[in-house]
Amino acid sequence: MPPAGPPTDAAPGPAAALERLRALCLALPGCEERVSHGEPSWFAGGRRMFATFADHHHDDRTACWTAAPAGVQEHLVATDSERFFRPPYVGHRGWVGVYLDRPVDWPQLADLLLEAYRLAAPARLRAALDGDL
Rank of each mutant, 00 (worst) to 15 (best):
W65D: 14
V96K: 01
A78Q: 13
G45N: 08
M49E: 08
R86M: 10
P40Q: 08
E82M: 09
A63E: 02
P87Q: 02
H56E: 15
H92S: 14
E74N: 02
G38D: 01
F43W: 01
H57I: 09
H57D: 09
A54Q: 13
R61L: 04
E82N: 05
A54I: 12
Y89L: 03
G71Q: 08
V90Q: 07
W95I: 05
H92E: 11
L76H: 08
R47L: 14
G71A: 04
G45I: 04
G91A: 10
T79V: 15
A63K: 04
F53L: 14
D55E: 14
V72M: 10
L76Y: 11
P40F: 03
R86F: 01
A68N: 06
T62G: 07
R47C: 05
G46F: 06
G45M: 04
H92G: 11
R48F: 03
Q73E: 06
H92M: 06
V77D: 02
D80M: 05
G91L: 08
V90D: 04
W42S: 05
R47E: 15
D55A: 13
G71N: 07
F53T: 10
Y89P: 00
P69W: 09
P87F: 00
H56P: 05
E82P: 01
Y89C: 00
A51C: 13
S41W: 01
D60V: 09
